[in-house]
Design a protein around this nucleic acid. Structure first.
Lengths: 345, 345
DNA sequence: GAAGCCATTCAAAGCGCTTTGAGGAAAATG
DNA sequence: CATTTTCCTCAAAGCGCTTTGAATGGCTTC
């Protein structure tokens, strides 16, 4: 069923049918009703490619997911972010197109996507400190919104980010207030911008209280259960082990918890853990009492907001750049407690 | 940059340029080189919508992700599956389009997608026992591959599935061999086909050894950490608690582990746990020794295979229906051990 | 040198839609 | 009744590509 057969069937011109379906005023209400009903019955939906070609709009948003070849891992946050963004697109009648790309072919892929014109805008995932994609997309004149920020870039661009600095500062201070001084940071990979911000905030909070940084208590790894477990296990074996951990994700925290158990220690008593919690659908942090004390910021919500911002930018390119920062809440769970008194005190 | 300007720039017709770029033989090698070089330099990529309109092929695969409104959760397996499928598409020059849909509007969405013709094929996720989508897509004449199967449907259709029955039968028998008789099943929601298969296999293995089923030891919930924790905690408080758990996902297993710890018991000694492991990138089951004994089947691999099957079906619709079953390996980890002797024996 | 043949290249039609600029019929006005 | 206005409808052009069928030119061959 295409426009031609539909209009022939209705004994109307293609113009009239098109106008009727797209809500133009030059069509009588009676005709419009008739057309709409016929479209419904015959299950007519305009061919998206033809429509896109005619209008110059693809009604599609692109997401480029970096799939690193070295660490073969899809960010677990991805699904929830997509779900959020997708709901924003659906509400606006947009589709979502996903491309996977390994680090090497990034630039080529972005150029291709823009040249092929099958998206009207792009969400940039996982920005690094001086992410080259921002300059590239600006140059290519493609609307985009960054989920996160790129510290070392001072071009104007639109972004939406969690206040990672504030979250990690608060988390560190929360532990400091409980008397902890040996606080470990289990960070994500630090070429990622957010991980860098988190470390700086952690360092700032410590030095702000006159506590020297200790490289042994800081690590920067992929945020998996295993890495959390291994790093925490190693740290707990130090001569002067940490009494608290600050982790970058729930999954890492679960690994840390396992390390604590395996070391014969008790979570929330011998060792405290505070984590960042992306509030993922399949990894909720407890039911009544949160399992982990956490800085919580819903990544699904971030997806919705990012999607909405991009849609606005597409509608009105002069609206940008738009910045939005999401504050994380600090929620108190069962995984933190006062620093244990030194055994040899 | 479009074909017209490129051909004018080259002082060639659009036909010749198009042919040169698409590898037709009616073009001299010299011209082809010249055209390709110019395309490269000027960063020309054909407009995907126009190309699609002209060829009738969208070069795009659709994935419809059910986002249940009741249990607001994106399947954690999704990201890895997509990554697998995406790599298959990329290799074939296909794009991936994702649509989210709540249960209610399923049929409408599928009909729309087909009518709009912006995908050449569809991957069906999360089939239920008598999934109506299979009949629908068959009727709409759209190539599709189901990730999983629908037990109660006997239309011919292409699918790719893990051998859930075999996996759960082996897992149950493994526990039985270790002397366990009180074996709990922490299943996924049983309107999902795979969950049903798993339960049947578990039941079959138990009754095969003359062990009566006990409803108290079976639950069917969303596969989250919390649900795993709550269900396991409740079961461990039973008068005659289970000595082993069979869980449907790593995440559930992590919840079960927490319940076991909280009950003051030791994993792999007092209580055994065996889980199904989708081998997710961010949730690897241990480094040297697996944390959990598990039936492992890579969901990323499933994505690759499903994508390849669908591409084949699109190329040659007469090739189907294609069926592929993936056997899970049983890997032995630290979470299982012989059944503890009865305390009151 | 004419005829025939490849090897190249081209102009034009068509994919299914939107949108412009114009036309026709009915209603309102003089 | 003729003219204007209003409303509705239409034919045709164009979006950027592929593909058909025809044309061109340089070679051979007799």
């Amino acid at each position: 069923m295409n426009l031609k057969t539909l209009s022939e069937h209705l004994k109307l011109s293609q113009t009239t049918v098109s106008r009727a379906l797209n809500g133009y005023p030059e069509v009588s209400e009676k005709t419009r009703m008739r057309v709409q009903q016929a479209a419904q019955e015959l299950n007519y939906s305009p061919n998206a490619r033809a429509k896109g070609l005619a209008t110059g709009r693809a009604q599609t948003i692109g997401h480029v997911i970096p799939v690193s070849t070295q660490h073969e891992m899809v960010n677990p946050v991805f699904g929830d972010f997509i779900a959020g963004a997708g709901s924003a697109y659906a509400a606006a009648g947009f589709e979502m197109m996903i491309s996977l790309v390994d680090d090497k072919s990034q630039e080529k892929l972005y150029r291709d996507i823009c040249a092929r014109r099958n998206v009207d805008g792009i969400i940039v995932h996982g920005p690094t400190m001086d992410d080259p994609r921002i300059a590239l997309l600006s140059e290519l004149n493609m609307p985009f919104v960054v989920h996160g920020r790129a510290s070392n870039i001072d071009l104007p661009y639109s972004w939406l980010d969690t206040n990672n600095s504030r979250a990690f500062q608060r988390a560190t201070e929360f532990l400091l207030d409980l008397g902890h001084t040996r606080i470990a940071l289990m960070n994500g990979l630090e070429f990622m911008d957010y991980a860098n911000r988190r470390r700086l905030a952690y360092e700032g909070a410590l030095t702000g209280r006159g506590i020297a940084l200790d490289g042994d208590l800081m690590c920067s790894k992929e945020m998996t259960e295993i890495k959390g477990f291994l790093s925490a296990s190693a740290m707990l074996k130090l001569e002067s082990p940490p009494t608290a951990f600050l982790t970058s994700s729930m999954i890492t925290a679960i690994g840390v918890r396992r390390a604590i158990h395996d070391a014969g220690l008790t979570l929330g008593k011998d060792v405290s853990v505070i984590t960042h919690d992306d509030d993922l659908g399949y990894l909720k942090n407890g039911h009544d009492v949160p399992i982990f004390t956490a800085t919580r910021s819903s990544v699904r919500e971030a997806g919705i907001r990012a999607g909405e911002i991009l849609l606005r930018l597409i509608r009105d390119p002069s609206a940008g750049p738009i910045h939005e920062i999401i504050e994380a809440e600090l929620i108190i769970g069962a995984s933190t407690g006062p620093a244990p008194r030194r055994q040899n005190a």
